[in-house]
Nucleic acid binder design. Structure first.
Length: 210
DNA sequence: ATATCGATTATCT
DNA sequence: GATAATCGATATG
């Protein structure tokens, strides 16, 4: 099997991430999450959330830098992985120039390659196309499908195609971008900082009624 | 179909 | 000691 996505997929630049997380989040829709595990896993990003650093009560960086969240205060384009509810890892990418906190949470993606490996990582069986969203629809599921853990991946450079985890652009143009309130938070829960590709079946949350 | 709830632990107060 | 950027199972209509 291939272990790289090919020359048509180029890593995003450091400058791409050195901006306001809302801008980064919107522009990440349609990009590709790439994993060498060592086999190749790829998935199209369809749902993300922006977290704004010091002025955002819902952000992990809201009350200053700690050991846990230090990646968010470092240079842009690096993986911030945290563990939550005693069960789940979640993947973010640091945004804003070094010294200013901010990030984007990856909430869902559409698998493109490595589907069998993702099912193994998730410890589930896929019997029909309608089961596929169970692989990568939701931040905990996405991280598990890509075997993302804090020990392995926190601090990883997501702008380098020589990383085992990175983000690529294959020229795909995202359509139907929408903005909604963020999911699963209690503070600042009204701010519309969740970005989705409307109608995409891999977006997490309620099953869409046609 | 929606609602509620338990699991399980790193991190912070 | 309380909480949490979740998930999956169970209960109920």
């Amino acid at each position: 099997m291939l272990n790289s996505p090919g020359p048509g997929v180029r890593p995003l630049s450091r400058a791409f991430f050195s901006r306001d997380p809302r801008r980064v989040a919107r522009e990440l829709l349609g990009k590709i999450l790439v994993r060498r595990d060592p086999t190749l896993l790829t998935a199209r990003i369809v749902e993300v959330e922006a977290y704004l650093g010091a002025k955002d009560p819902a952000a992990h960086s809201a009350s200053g830098q700690t050991l846990r969240n230090s990646v968010l205060f470092g240079p842009p384009g690096y993986a911030y992985v945290y563990f939550i509810y005693g069960n789940h890892y979640c993947l973010n990418v640091s945004c804003e120039p070094e010294g200013k906190a901010g990030g984007v949470l990856f909430r869902a993606a559409e698998p493109l390659s490595g589907i069998d490996e993702m099912a193994q990582a998730r410890d589930i069986e896929i019997h029909r196309p309608a089961d596929l969203p169970k692989l990568t629809s939701g931040p905990g599921r996405l991280a598990q499908a890509f075997r993302i853990t804090r020990t392995r991946d926190n601090g990883c450079d997501l702008t380098s195609s020589s990383s085992s985890l990175w983000i690529g652009d294959d020229g795909y143009r995202a359509r139907g971008i929408r903005r909604t309130p963020r999911i699963g938070i209690t503070k600042a829960a009204d701010k519309p900082l969740r970005y989705i590709l409307a109608g995409n079946p891999f977006v997490s949350g309620k099953t869409k009624t046609r």
